[in-house]
Amino acid sequence: MKRKAIALGVASIAATAMFFFSKPQSGFIDPSDSEMVAKGKNIYAAHCAACHGANLEGQPEWRKRLPNGRLPAPPHDGSGHTWHHPDAVLVDIVKNSLVPGRTAPDGYQSDMPAYANVLSDTDIAAVLAYIKSTWPPEALAMQKELSLRR
């Protein structure tokens, strides 16, 4: 019993150390996985399309501030700016909304909800794979380069 407790304690310390001292995950969510894209399309339809458009077109005049000072939801197709951001930033935005000083300018307010308690990391990756599957090859290549930089 004592050996089990010691082994469990050592394993717990090792897992904690790996979590705190490992390099942050970076990488590229590849939109070539058709199953992931199909899953992402369904999740997008259920959670994102109401604001960002059924065809990823965004809200009208998405660059013009609303009366409350906030910006409408941008498009996620190639006409928008989503592809200008690495995957780590896009995942952060989906999970935590736009956070001033981190993923948005200081003082910025957004209507974008946080999905950390709604969607799993796998779900978020699937949505991003779906979105990215619609981009022109040049935009996808540029976004991939951004995502793979350390």
Rank of each mutant, 00 (worst) to 15 (best):
F21K: 00
S22N: 13
S22R: 14
S22T: 15
K23L: 13
K23R: 14
P24Y: 03
P24K: 11
Q25Y: 13
S26Y: 10
F28G: 02
I29V: 15
I29G: 02
D30C: 06
D30H: 04
D30S: 13
S32M: 14
D33K: 04
E35Q: 14
E35I: 08
E35V: 11
V37P: 08
K41I: 02
K41N: 10
N42S: 14
I43M: 03
A45N: 14
A45H: 07
A46P: 00
H47D: 10
H47E: 14
A50E: 11
C51S: 13
C51D: 11
H52Q: 06
G53R: 01
A54N: 07
A54T: 07
N55F: 06
G58I: 03
Q59I: 02
P60W: 07
W62P: 00
W62M: 04
R63M: 14
R63C: 01
R63A: 14
R65Q: 15
L66F: 07
N68A: 04
N68G: 06
A73F: 06
P75F: 07
H76Y: 12
H76L: 15
H76S: 11
D77W: 01
G78N: 12
G78H: 08
S79V: 05
G80Q: 03
G80H: 02
H85G: 00
P86T: 06
D87S: 12
D87M: 12
D87F: 13
A88I: 12
V89D: 08
V89K: 11
L90S: 06
V91H: 09
D92A: 12
K95Y: 10
L98I: 02
P100W: 04
P100Y: 05
T103N: 02
A104K: 11
P105G: 09
Y108W: 14
Q109L: 08
Q109Y: 01
S110Q: 07
S110L: 03
M112E: 09
A114D: 05
Y115M: 01
A116E: 10
A116H: 08
L119E: 11
D121C: 06
T122M: 01
T122N: 08
A126Q: 03
A126H: 04
V127G: 07
L128G: 01
A129E: 01
Y130D: 03
Y130N: 03
I131A: 11
K132E: 06
S133C: 08
W135F: 08
P136F: 03
P137V: 01
A139K: 13
A141M: 09
Q143Y: 00
S147N: 09
R149N: 07
